[in-house]
């Protein structure tokens, strides 16, 4: 019973983290039919910027984290405009190659600047201990993951369902040609969505650094994980991405609890089975890259 409740609670938190990091990827892939293997770079970058701002510059934790998120969003804009957007509409292979290239460059720069070992995220006193949540104690960081994840989901939902930008975004995901025919600037929508997604990935990378430690190989190590969340959830679907992130989070946590030695083998088998059964996602809106 305790194992089961642990799997559910830890899986839920892990899943929420995966959602935060992958949701931007899902939206931009749904928008531009673009295969992006470099999304994890933003999560890693967020982690490194936050560590630098807090440890080296000495900013207060909350300020450092928020500034890091903003910095990553800003950095992602020229990247999308001048690099990524040049392969929109090209073959999937070209997109894969370009984004692998970007990933390799990021890994190399991170190792040259920060070293190849894991970097520890500085934490304020409030977050470094553990908290009693009634039936068990839990590291306070995980509660932070849960809270930020829920906030990200709610604010994204509000933006997508209730604002003009959200209407444009949904229109562009559903049918880009028609959306641009009725006067929606789909390129601008794509850039804004890309920057938003990068910012959320950065936030996920920072608050989730106890679960997915910040290191240079981060973007490569978790590439399959993030991409699988998107593929299983269906491209461009908010609720689908949440559901798939929670499912995969639970599956991964369950394999780690029940068969720690075989966890990565079992996890890949699970991903292979899920994706081959539902290649357009569990809740797929049928958008294909």
């Amino acid at each position: 019973m305790i194992v089961l409740s642990n799997i559910i609670v830890d899986g839920l938190i892990y899943g929420i983290l995966l959602f935060m990091i992958a949701v931007g990827l899902s939206i931009t892939m749904g928008l531009m039919r673009f295969v992006n293997l470099a999304h994890g770079v933003f999560a890693m970058l967020g982690g490194y910027v936050a560590i630098t701002l807090i440890s080296s510059v000495g900013m207060p934790w909350v300020v450092g984290v928020m500034l890091a998120v903003v910095v990553v969003s800003l950095v992602s804009i020229p990247l999308e405009r001048f690099l990524i957007s040049r392969v929109y509409g090209r073959t999937a292979l070209d997109q894969v190659l370009l984004t692998i290239g970007v990933t390799f460059i990021a890994i190399a720069l991170a190792s040259l600047i920060f070293g190849t070992r894991m970097s520890a995220m500085p934490l304020p006193a409030l977050l470094s201990g553990s908290m009693d949540v009634g039936f068990r104690t839990m590291p306070a960081q995980r509660i932070l993951v849960l809270i930020s994840g829920i906030l990200v989901f709610l604010s994204l939902w509000l933006v997508i369902e209730k604002t003009t930008f959200g209407i444009r975004l949904r229109a562009a995901v559903d049918h880009p040609a028609t959306a641009s025919a009725v006067g929606i600037n789909t390129r601008l929508v794509a850039t804004v969505a890309f920057a938003l997604g990068a910012g959320m990935a950065a936030l996920g990378g920072i608050v989730g650094s106890s679960l997915l430690p910040i290191e240079p190989y981060y973007p490569l190590k978790y590439m399959v994980l993030f991409l699988s969340v998107v593929a299983v959830g269906g491209l461009g679907s908010l609720v689908g991405t949440l559901a798939s992130a929670l499912t995969l989070g639970m599956v991964d946590t369950a394999t780690k609890y029940l068969a720690p030695e075989y966890s990565s083998i079992l996890f890949f088998i699970a991903i292979i089975i899920i994706i081959s059964m539902r290649p357009n996602g569990m809740f797929g809106r049928g958008v294909n890259v």
């Binding site: 999937a92 399959v224 991409l227 699988s228 890949f268 991903i271 292979i272 994706i275 357009n280």
Partner: peptide, 10 residues
Amino acid sequence: GLSFIILTIA
């Protein structure tokens, strides 16, 4: 597309 690429990596 994406599903195929992920499966090959996986």
